[in-house]
Design a protein around this nucleic acid. Structure first.
Length: 210
DNA sequence: ACATTAAGTGATT
DNA sequence: AATCACTTAATGT
């Protein structure tokens, strides 16, 4: 049995299905920063996360990225699931946020698994629901939060998925993710540091108030 | 020691 | 909150 499969999915998925996953899935190990799928690419596989985290984002006309949500251990990507129902092109971009291990499942198997395994149905629907909720939260944050609140939430989320309160980022990268300028980020970060919520170093931020 | 890149800041809009 | 223009600090060669 593939490493990590049982630990993550034994309680959710039935034994027979786990066997199938084990034999048809491809085990993959990727480094942080790896592009797993890009917008417009054909979706042929569906990921099951064993460890690590993946950042899922959308892109607008100006090539600006918008973070939709993170996939974490035990998650799968619901957007991929819709591709199994006819839509074939990816609407999103997925980049490994940390070093990640996952199992890639051929989408050809999805529809038969949906019929064959109740546990798979549940897993998929539940995942779909989780993704939707996370996206609603992202929209909510974007629409109603002020930039300083968004920034802090961004840092906390990042610390969370990295399982480390010390985050490796530059102010410029944060600015890109939040669609603002580096100067503004630097100033807001300074303010957060004064509030003793974070600690600033070059290329690195420590989140104190998790 | 020098160049490059990241971060901090005042002033202006 | 964005932009400019500039300074200071950290890091690589």
């Amino acid at each position: 049995m593939k490493e990590g499969l049982l630990e993550n999915y034994n309680n959710i998925l039935e034994a027979e299905l786990l066997q199938e996953i084990n034999s048809f899935g491809k085990y993959k190990k990727v480094k942080a920063g790896t592009l797993l799928i890009d917008i417009g690419q054909e979706v042929t596989q569906m990921p099951l996360l064993l460890s690590g985290a993946i950042k899922i984002m959308q892109e607008d006309e100006n090539e600006e990225e918008l973070i939709l949500y993170y996939l974490e251990q035990g998650d799968t990507c619901a957007i991929t699931l819709s591709c199994c129902l006819g839509l074939k092109k990816s609407k999103i971009r997925a980049v490994a946020e940390t070093d990640t291990t996952l199992i890639m499942l051929p989408i050809a198997l999805m529809s038969q698994w949906m019929k064959k395994y109740i546990s798979w149905q549940n897993f998929v629907l539940e995942s779909y629901n989780e993704r939707l909720n996370e996206m609603l939260e992202a929209i909510n944050t974007l629409a109603f939060y002020k930039l300083d609140e968004r920034l802090f939430k961004y840092l906390r989320d990042k610390a969370m998925v990295n399982k480390n309160e010390i985050i490796q980022v530059t102010h410029q990268e944060i600015a890109n993710d939040l669609h603002t300028s580096r100067v503004v980020v630097s100033r807001l970060l300074k303010a957060l540091e004064r509030e003793k919520k974070i600690l600033l170093k070059r290329n690195q931020i420590q989140v104190l108030a998790l």
